[in-house]
Design a protein around this nucleic acid. Structure first.
Length: 794
DNA sequence: CTATTCTATATATCA
DNA sequence: TATAGAATAG
């Protein structure tokens, strides 16, 4: 993305250089300002001093941001390379570039300082790497490299990985880095929480390792940038002077490190404009500090605050539902969204018997919409946790509904891509130990722990990179004959490839390397389901290299900016998590799983209490405000959690919606009466008779049933194990009826107290019988629910 | 060293 | 229930 920009040496503009003035004069009077409402216009034109734009969902935030940049350039206040513009995702950065280009004509590389915090920091660090003990070709460590490194450190320190998982340490280090804390500044209490007080020490060791590897992890990009500026005031001043204007998108998502970063860089000119929405802060768990936005006026005295409250996206009912809900939060700056759009359809709340029925109902509603010529690409299903996706996907597959999952593992995080990358990193830099380790035995070459250990020992003893140690060792008899030959061949191959670099375009070289190393072969021989897809990914990987001039620039940027390019214009339903949906909008949005425990998520509540709840509520608000014309909420009364069925209760958020904007329906009339019916669950069934509207009230049978269950204490009182209590317990009759209906229908011949033998769990005593399901107290395995066909009488 | 069996674990995710 | 990673057997 960012090639070295050639504007660097142009002397800084002074008020209005001739060219800038000429440009300003040449452009017709501010066409780009047309169509903005008063507030938006104010946000664009308040160029001087600190500005906070509180932009509610759908109020034209991105438009303000891009117009503001266009305005700065068109009026000659700054040239493109004097504007620092920070976003959180590459996607946002890309979109912004496109929109600016559309406004003021092609800027292309002219906005070199528009990017993510990380890419901008990396760019700065590469220029001054030596000042923070790195070389300018340092590698950027992805999460899995980071974990491997930590694991090595834990092993070297003799710390039990079981008791102190590397992941946990990685999480801790991350959270310290998010708060701008170096190893020396870690609060003793927190450092003590890991491995008997060795947390801080391990953090320091990790940082030390990074330096010797000439590597930085994502957190370091920011942290080292901070250190660079703090320790070198002259360099700080350089950047303070260069950036005449600064803009930050999604300010509510900034963490402490990013806040400090901004504060340093904005200290001098103070032309910092932050755009954000405290009601859309949903990343507290990864270090975002809502406080940053709540404190803005305090941190930047004299700040101009502009509120954007006119929503251009959603209809009245949707907006009032979202506003009413979010008003239950206490820690907020307070905005009142309004629209001049018509009220539109009410938000629907639909209760379903279980998650399967919920998925069915969604599928059917989508088919109905489809029959009404609703574009599938304008429909989204937003879930709280990705585990919810499977059942919905299953349903879509059955119905033949085209869908796409948004989010999930990124292209460059896939194993095959990281492997391929590791090969290239080795070709590029023989001292890249992490890359070498990754691929020495991939594909399998018969090199195991033992061999690797020898390499490691020598490398450490001689203070040389692994590859160099290997080159030396294959000429000695330190190694057994077999691994020695294997390694010698591998080293020869790397030498060959390095030589080819001179004579061959880098993407062809990549092909050769993957072919000759046997890597492509490995996947071709693999006959698992996803092997084909992996080969496709590898092809795409090689193809994507063509977009870069050479291997070096490719490597330098993949870790930060490579994304799966989904040039998919097909008409499909989108399925994603609520988090992934931020910033998107759809005509129709389905919101399944509004149940206590799932949403608001129990874990969020347990770990963060009230602030956790408020973040969950903001997430609900984000979900609702993604919808332009239709928002459809669902909850199920029974859901499987970690494979165990649980009775669930509608989310409190459902109760926080304004009654006048909500319509309550029932997914399946069959169970509406509660008792008696419900046997013989017919799959499919007719399409519309199941979704009955009982008018806009909270008085449908299902609703009341759900409420009474809620009042009765819900699943938490049901013994924790869902239905396992069966016979003995006084669980809701309906549940048992349903359970029997789901089973083969034959009543088990076992009775409580019978001794049985299970093929897996061994001997046990039947505690309860429920249809053909038994609850057995096993002598060894404990209490489990099993099908009677899996045990025999003893 | 590799293949199999076993066991622990399960919010969200950006760079 | 599903999966990833570790222990164990071959």
């Amino acid at each position: 993305m960012s090639r070295p920009d050639d504007h660097e040496r142009v002397p800084p503009a002074r008020g209005g250089s001739i060219s800038a003035r000429a440009r300003a004069a040449a452009s017709p009077p501010a066409i780009y300002l047309e169509g903005l409402n008063d507030e938006q216009r104010r946000a664009v034109e308040a160029t001087e001093g600190p500005v906070l734009v509180l932009a509610g969902a759908g109020t034209g935030k991105t438009r303000v941001l891009t117009t503001r940049i266009a305005h700065l350039i068109a009026t000659g206040k700054a040239r493109p390379f004097e504007i620092l513009s920070v976003t959180f995702t590459n996607k946002a950065a890309r979109e912004m570039k496109e929109r600016i280009a559309a406004l003021i004509g092609e800027v292309g590389e002219g906005m070199p300082w528009l990017g993510t915090f990380h890419s901008i920091s990396a760019k700065i660090l590469r220029r001054h790497a030596e000042l923070v003990d790195l070389r300018s070709d340092f590698t950027i460590l992805a999460t899995d490299d980071q974990l491997r490194l930590l694991k090595q450190i834990l092993q070297a320190e003799g710390i039990d990985e079981k008791r102190w998982p590397p992941r946990q340490l990685a999480g801790l280090i991350d959270s310290w880095k998010n708060r701008g804390l170096g190893p020396d500044k870690v609060p003793p209490g927190e450092a003590g929480a890991f491995a008997h007080g060795r947390g801080g020490e391990l953090y320091a060791l990790y940082q030390q390792r990074l330096k010797t590897l000439n590597a930085a992890d994502f957190g370091d990009l920011l942290l080292e940038c901070l250190r660079l500026w703090r320790e070198n005031p002259d360099i700080l001043e350089l950047y303070q002077n260069r950036f005449r204007y600064m803009l930050v998108d999604e300010y509510q998502d900034t963490n402490v490190a990013q806040y400090l970063w901004l504060r340093l860089i904005a200290q001098k000119r103070k032309n910092l404009a932050c755009v954000g929405d405290d009601d859309q802060s949903i990343y507290g768990w990864r270090g975002a500090e809502v406080d940053n936005i709540l404190r803005f006026e305090h941190d930047f005295p004299g700040a101009t605050v502009v509120r954007l409250e006119r929503n251009y996206r959603s209809t009245g009912h949707i907006l009032s539902a979202a506003s009413h809900l979010i008003a239950f939060n206490e820690g907020r700056l307070g905005k009142t969204l309004h629209t001049e759009d018509e009220p539109g359809e009410k938000v629907t709340v639909t209760g379903a018997w279980d998650s399967g029925e919920e998925a069915r109902a969604i599928g059917e509603e989508i088919e109905a919409l489809q029959a009404n010529r609703h574009a599938l690409s304008q429909i989204a299903v937003l879930v709280r946790v990705s585990a919810q996706m499977r059942e919905i996907e299953d349903r879509f597959v059955q119905l033949g509904l085209p869908y796409r999952v948004i989010g999930g593992p990124r292209f460059f995080e896939r194993a095959e891509i990281r492997d391929a990358l590791a090969y290239l990193r080795c070709v590029n830099s023989p001292s890249d130990d992490l890359a070498f380790e990754r691929i020495v035995n991939t594909p399998k070459r018969g090199l195991g722990d033992a061999t690797l250990q020898i390499l490691h020992n020598h490398a450490r003893a001689a203070q040389v990179p692994l590859m160099q140690a290997t080159r030396f060792l294959v000429e000695t008899d330190e190694l057994k004959a077999k691994p020695r030959n294997t390694l010698r061949n591998l080293m020869a191959a790397f030498e060959r490839w390095s030589a080819m670099r001179e004579t061959m375009p880098h993407h062809e070289l990549a092909e050769v390397v993957l072919e000759e190393s046997g890597y492509t072969d490995m996947w071709q021989k693999d006959k698992s389901a996803d092997a084909h897809g992996r080969l496709e990914n590898l092809k795409e990987f090689v193809r994507s290299m063509e977009e870069f001039p050479d291997l070096l620039s490719f490597l330098e940027h993949v870790s930060l900016v490579m994304e799966r390019n989904e040039a998919d214009n097909e008409d499909r339903v989108s399925l994603m998590t609520l988090h992934a949906a931020k910033g998107l909008e759809f005509d129709t949005v389905f919101l399944p799983g509004w149940e206590e425990g799932l949403f608001p998520n129990q874990r969020a509540l347990d770990e963060s209490g009230l602030s956790g709840l408020e973040e969950e509520r903001r997430l609900a608000h984000v979900g609702l405000t993604r919808a332009r014309r239709r928002a459809k909420i669902f909850f199920a009364s029974n859901r499987r959690i970690h494979g165990m069925w649980n009775a669930t209760v509608p989310s409190r958020f459902v109760d926080e919606l304004p009654e006048e904007s909500v319509e309550v329906t029932e997914a399946q009339a069959q169970f509406g009466g509660g008792f008696g019916g419900g046997f013989g669950g017919r799959p499919g069934g007719s399409r519309f008779d199941q979704i009955e509207s009982f008018g806009s009230s909270y008085e449908t049978p299902g609703w009341q049933r759900a409420q009474s269950r809620k009042a009765a204490g819900g699943f938490s009182d049901a013994g924790g194990g869902g239905w396992r209590g069966g016979g003995g317990r006084s669980g809701p009759t309906v549940i048992e009826g349903e359970l029997v209906a789901r089973s083969t229908g034959t009543e088990s011949t076992f009775e409580p107290g019978a001794r049985v033998l299970h093929m897996k769990f061994g001997p046990g005593t039947v505690a309860a019988v429920d249809g053909n399901k038994l609850t057995v107290e096993f002598d060894k395995a404990g209490r489990k629910m099993v099908l009677d066909s899996f045990v025999e009488r003893t």
